[in-house]
Design a protein around this nucleic acid. Structure first.
Length: 566
RNA sequence: UGGGGAGUGGCCAAAUUGGUAAGGCACCUGAUUCUGGUUCAGGCAACUGAAGGUUCGAAUCCUUCCUCCCCAGCCA
């Protein structure tokens, strides 16, 4: 990959500094991390931060990183999600090798651990309803009260727990709870539920089980089973760490991983909540999880974001414990940096305006040479057909141009890239007064784009030859939400969070169906992003058909003229 | 009004752990340029949440206060 590895002199984050220290003290033989997604939705760029951290650590310290699906809630999970998650991680550029695991693979072991907890008097079967448990949990400022089942014997709890597993009870009627402290200032320690009955078919274990472990039991034990050394998670799990440690200590686990929390990624103009993203998909506000406007990895892939740009972005934002919201511009910067050096250039006219060269020899077609990538000489050159009948970008012409407008206007001479200087002599309009064609003359001495007399022009325009160009549909994407923080905006307007779909930027997708591209565009492959000169970066969309390719705009080029106009 | 976390320029984020505030993004100049792209040169912007204190010296230590985030799912 051509992307630069710029982490060499980058300041080390607190996690890496900690590991440096532990390694120096000889506290680990090897670093083992894990990325533990729940297969209940698609991965987004927030997950990419975690993936880059966990796999990055393993790579940098010569350890390994496991991919473990935290599939302990069958009612929410599905194989569709495990497949997409695997594909997204691989696409991002990381490899879990043989280390693919599922919490569901540990169901028996987890169950055995739970029985052991009961035997040790550290857990009991509770027959309170969900509502009763909630009432007895207390509040942030008031302690909870003990369950009436809290003091029953280990034998009785064990018998009941086995009968729970055997399917003798209704869902919700019994739970296994840890016996900790109903007065703990940490609510998570007030006799948390460890196992619940759920009559749902699991995507991997089917109907083998009707009791399922909760996160707080399954996660720490799975980490322990796998010999994880550093269990990285986001800040909202900080309170759970006490329980993580409690479970492993209660069981005298030989392997006790260290939980370390870091701040999750937030990005302006989008949302990073799986729940909200799922809502957009289910309500049809976007075309799917891979809608190119979505902050999902599959959406970004379809949008044309190179994985290296996402990795560099994750590296660039760092890892800290402070809440943050990174501006979308920072992601776009990484995109442009990566694409500028790697993307092949083409010419494509998005919104065509006919330009006829009146002094061009009738029927003549010339082949001109164009550079594929000025940033990479090895990319070579290509031939470009030129004729007297062309298309140029409609917005590159103004009949009555303002001061700083350098492009085409009546009487003005500009360069057609790699071709000739042309001068606009006449403007043709239809009955509505709209400009429909430009009549120009060209200077034969400027072939290739330079004038022998040293004459300068202020602008160079892209173009295509009408006859030889290929038609295309182009989708111009912009930020999903106009608001920097759409969730906050919706909340402030008094609507409930489910109304986020109404906050979508109405201009987030603009489709052009009359675009014309130079012939080389026909050879473009899916999955690679190219640059349409002066317009931005684009990639082929799967919606393309044999006779009409569809291109997605990945990101625009920086545009000094657009900024000037404001 | 319990517990847990966090406050460094508009946004991220460093600071050898007490020595006098990196870097990136964004923004603004100028130069170069057959992409108003790229590149290059330069610039703008922080009394480090606040107030006290210790010290020759504090973003770093102490005290008090303020603000923001997370926790009351049989979700993860």
């Amino acid at each position: 990959m051509g992307s630069s590895e710029d982490k060499a002199d980058k300041p080390r984050d607190f996690v890496r500094k900690l590991i440096d220290k532990e390694l120096a003290e000889g506290r680990h033989d090897e670093i083992v991390t894990r990325f533990p997604p729940e297969p209940n939705g698609y991965l987004h760029i927030g997950h990419a931060k975690s993936i880059c951290l966990n796999f990055g650590l393993a790579g940098e310290f010569g350890g390994r990183c496991h991919l473990r699906f935290d599939d302990t809630n069958p009612s929410a999970e599905d194989t569709e999600y495990v497949d997409s998650i695997k594909a997204d991680i691989a696409w991002l550029g990381f490899d879990w090798g043989q280390h693919l695991y599922f919490a569901s693979d540990y169901y028996q072991r987890l169950y055995d651990c739970a029985e052991e907890l009961v035997r040790r008097g550290r857990a009991y079967v509770c027959e309170l309803s969900a509502e009763q448990v909630r009432e007895q949990r207390g509040t942030l400022t008031r302690p909870g009260s003990d369950s009436p089942w809290r003091e029953r014997s280990a034998e009785e709890s064990l018998d009941l727990f086995r009968r729970m597993r055997a399917g003798e009870f209704e869902a919700g009627s019994h739970t296994l709870r840890a016996r900790i402290d109903m007065a703990s200032p940490r609510i998570v320690m007030r006799d948390p539920v460890l196992y619940r009955i759920q009559r749902a078919s699991h995507h991997r274990t089917g109907d083998d089980w009707c009791v399922y472990p909760m996160y707080d039991l399954a996660h720490c034990l799975s980490d322990s089973f796998e010999g994880i050394t550093h269990s990285l998670c986001t800040l909202e799990f900080a309170d759970n760490k006490a329980l993580y440690d409690w479970v492993l200590d209660a069981l005298d686990s030989e392997c006790h991983p260290q939980q370390i929390e870091f701040a999750r990624l937030n990005l302006t103009h989008t949302v990073m909540s799986k729940r909200v993203l799922r809502g957009l998909v289910e309500e049809g506000k976007v075309s799917g999880w891979d809608d190119p406007r979505m902050p999902t990895l599959s959406g970004m892939r379809r949008r044309g974001y190179p994985p290296a740009a996402i990795r560099n972005f994750c590296l660039g934002v760092g890892v800290t414990r402070s809440d943050n919201t990174v501006q979308y511009e920072q992601l776009e910067h990484e995109l442009r940096q990566e694409l500028n050096s790697s993307a092949t250039r083409l010419m494509g006219v998005l919104d065509p305006l006919k330009l006829t060269i009146t002094n061009w020899p009738e029927g003549k077609v010339e082949q001109l040479t164009a550079i594929n990538n000025p940033e990479d000489e090895s990319a070579g050159t290509r031939e470009l057909p030129f004729s007297g009948s062309l298309y140029v970008e409609r917005e590159d012409f103004m009949e009555d141009p303002p001061r700083k407008f350098f492009r085409l206007s009546p009487g003005r001479e500009v360069r057609l890239r790699y071709a000739y200087f042309v001068t606009c002599n006449e403007v043709v309009k239809n009955d509505e007064g709209e400009v429909i064609e430009l009549l120009c003359s060209y200077d034969p001495a400027t072939r290739g784009g330079d004038s022998p007399d040293g004459r300068k022009v202020k602008a160079t325009l892209h173009w295509v030859s009408a006859e030889q160009s290929v038609p295309a549909r182009v989708r111009l994407y912009d930020r999903l939400f106009t608001a920097e923080n759409p969730l906050a905006q919706v909340a402030a307007s008094g609507k409930d969070g489910n109304k986020i779909g109404d906050a979508i930027n109405p201009d987030s997708l603009l489709e052009l169906s009359q675009s014309r591209l130079e012939p080389a565009a026909a050879d473009l492959k899916a999955g690679v992003t190219c640059q349409f000169e002066r317009k931005g970066y684009f990639c082929l969309d799967p919606d393309s058909t044999a006779d009409l390719p569809v291109f997605n705009r990945t990101v625009t080029l920086r545009d000094a003229w657009a900024r000037l106009r404001k």
